[in-house]
Simulated assay, not measured.
Amino acid sequence: MQQINARVESYTNVRPDAPLPEQYANYMTSVLTGDLGTSIWHNEPVSMIMAKAIPWTVFVSSVSLILTFVIGICLGAIMAYYEGSQFDVSSTILTTLLNAIPYYIAAIILLYFLGFQGGFFPTGGRFDPDTTPGLNLSFILSIIHYGALPIFSFVITGIDPLGMRGNSISVLGSDYVRVARLRGLSDMRISIRYVAHNAILPFYTGLLISIGGLIGGSVIMEQIFSYPGVGYYIFESISSRDYPLMMGGFLVLTVCVVIGVYIADLTYGKVDPRAGTGDQRESY
């Protein structure tokens, strides 16, 4: 039993025979010093595994998030500007159908047709092993090529322009939009520069909060595409009962959510000056 307890302590930095509050305090102390324990399956420090995996998950998640919101915002503004048109109706139907498809179903379909059948994209890995890692064009293009299908799977099932469309319709009745039309500005410029710019503000907080959900969704996505990121190692740790690696992976997801919400809270007043500050509250 002593040998088992010593081995558990060496892997998790927690004494299994200690009281639970003491175990928690010891684990959090080791986390704050950057020691997340040792992976049982890989026999490697969890912090090193996460350090190598985080950049790849951040790459796929951030690009997917940016593309999803940019396309959704622009499309919603254009749909609102042409409200009731054939473009508006068809776009609404198409995006509703795509939103109803789970991202992992889209991932499997894309992987089968564009990966295994078509051979247009690789079916696993993070980059071409024949390229030299570094800031060179071949390596960068290889990263984009290998990450294209995971990104595309998130984007096509995550675009939701309907909320933006509703906000934009309310903005279209504003005086500055009428003035822009009288000035003879193009419809595209009005819908993007004037309508989208002001209707986008309520989505800013949701943008940063969705970081956690997107990274959490990478657990299944990275497993489907054999893309070794944080989600890939979390899934692997669950399958192999590698508890130190599992705890380290979930800790990374939690920190990402907290940081996203915190940044949203700090910067929303800068993005939308109408939100004001704590010293400018009105009394009712």
Rank of each mutant, 00 (worst) to 15 (best):
V171Y: 01
F203C: 09
F154T: 05
L207Q: 10
I224G: 02
M221E: 03
G166K: 12
S239C: 09
L185G: 00
I263A: 09
Y176H: 11
G147A: 15
Y146G: 03
P161A: 01
L185T: 01
T254R: 05
A264G: 02
I159E: 00
I259D: 01
G248P: 07
L251T: 15
H197I: 11
S191Q: 03
V179A: 12
P150L: 08
P133A: 08
S174M: 11
Q223T: 14
F154R: 05
G217V: 09
L253D: 01
S239V: 13
L162H: 13
M247A: 14
L214P: 06
L201E: 02
A148R: 07
P129V: 13
Q223D: 11
G260H: 03
V252M: 12
H145N: 12
D160Y: 14
G158C: 04
I140F: 11
Y204V: 15
P244Y: 06
H145C: 02
V179G: 00
D265I: 06
V255G: 03
P133S: 06
M188N: 13
R189E: 01
R189W: 07
P129G: 05
F203D: 12
I156G: 00
L182M: 13
Q223K: 14
Y227M: 03
T267F: 13
V179D: 00
V257T: 12
L182P: 00
E236A: 13
I192Y: 10
G184C: 04
N136I: 11
L253H: 06
Y194S: 07
T132W: 05
G212H: 08
A196E: 02
S153Y: 05
F235Y: 15
V219W: 07
A180N: 01
F203T: 13
S210E: 07
R126K: 11
L137G: 06
S142D: 08
G206K: 07
R183L: 10
E236H: 11
V252H: 01
R178Q: 12
R181W: 08
I159W: 01
E236V: 06
S168A: 13
I211P: 03
D160A: 15
S138G: 11
I259N: 08
D128L: 09
L182E: 05
F154C: 11
T205Y: 10
T123R: 08
G217R: 07
P244F: 08
N198E: 07
F152H: 05
R241K: 13
P161C: 00
S142Y: 10
S237E: 04
I190A: 01
S226P: 11
I238H: 02
G206P: 09
I140G: 03
V258C: 05
M247Q: 15
T267A: 10
G248K: 09
D175M: 09
